[in-house]
């Protein structure tokens, strides 16, 4: 049991180290093309982490949407805007301080949380066992995540589709080719 936990910890820490290295590279990199690629790498690494945490469906989605579509959108934006980031004049000391204080507060908050991976955590004992128990009889497909997403929580998923539609309409209204003079706007 304990050896199992240590094994998971080692894999997690390897993935986490790679994630932090990617994030630091994003901080330091001034070429926006490299930043877009590194953000794709970050998404792919987090998909790997999701697999070790038993979340296959989330890993698939993160790899397809985070590493795929998101990178394509970034590259499209880069083609229409700048290639490099400007060096900033003001100091980054205050943001650093804010992040340290907020991070310390978050870590202090986790000290009271139930331990990672324990089967009797409050989050595991409420409604999740019911879904696992009822899915084979009521829905009849092996993937519980799909059953909850599409059937038990179908209305939530419809709400998600509405959000995506609203975002699509927003993007089209902002970037649509009709009704906007080509070239620079004159004020």
């Amino acid at each position: 049991m304990n050896a199992n936990l240590v094994g998971i910890a080692i894999i997690d820490i390897v993935f986490f180290t790679l994630l932090v290295l990617t994030a630091v590279a994003i901080i330091r990199q001034r070429s926006l093309f490299a930043v877009a690629m590194l953000s794709g790498v970050f998404s792919l690494l987090s998909a790997g982490l999701f697999v070790t945490l038993d979340a296959m469906d989330v890993a698939f989605t993160e790899a397809a949407v985070g590493a795929g579509i998101s990178t394509v959108l970034m590259l499209g934006t880069l083609a229409l805007t700048d290639k490099d980031e400007m060096k900033r004049k003001r100091s980054a000391l205050l943001p650093l301080l804010v992040c340290f204080v907020a991070g310390a507060a978050l870590i202090y908050g986790t000290l009271d949380m139930p331990p990672f991976g324990a089967a009797d955590n409050p989050v595991q004992t409420h409604v999740a066992p019911e879904y696992i128990e009822r899915t084979p009889a009521e829905i009849g497909i092996p993937n519980i995540v799909a059953a909850v997403l599409a059937s038990y929580r179908g209305f939530d998923t419809m709400g998600e589709v509405v959000v995506v539609f609203a975002a699509l309409v927003g993007v089209l209204l902002m970037l649509g080719t009709t009704g906007r003079p080509s070239g620079k706007r004159k004020e």
């Binding site: 994030a23 630091v24 900033r88 992040c99 907020a102 991070g103 986790t110 990672f116 991976g117």
Partner: peptide, 24 residues
Amino acid sequence: LGRYNYWLFSILMMTGLYITVSRG
């Protein structure tokens, strides 16, 4: 072992916050 996961994610979260706040 029961909490290091939460700490690691907090650090990663703060890295993201730092990029958002400090970069122009």
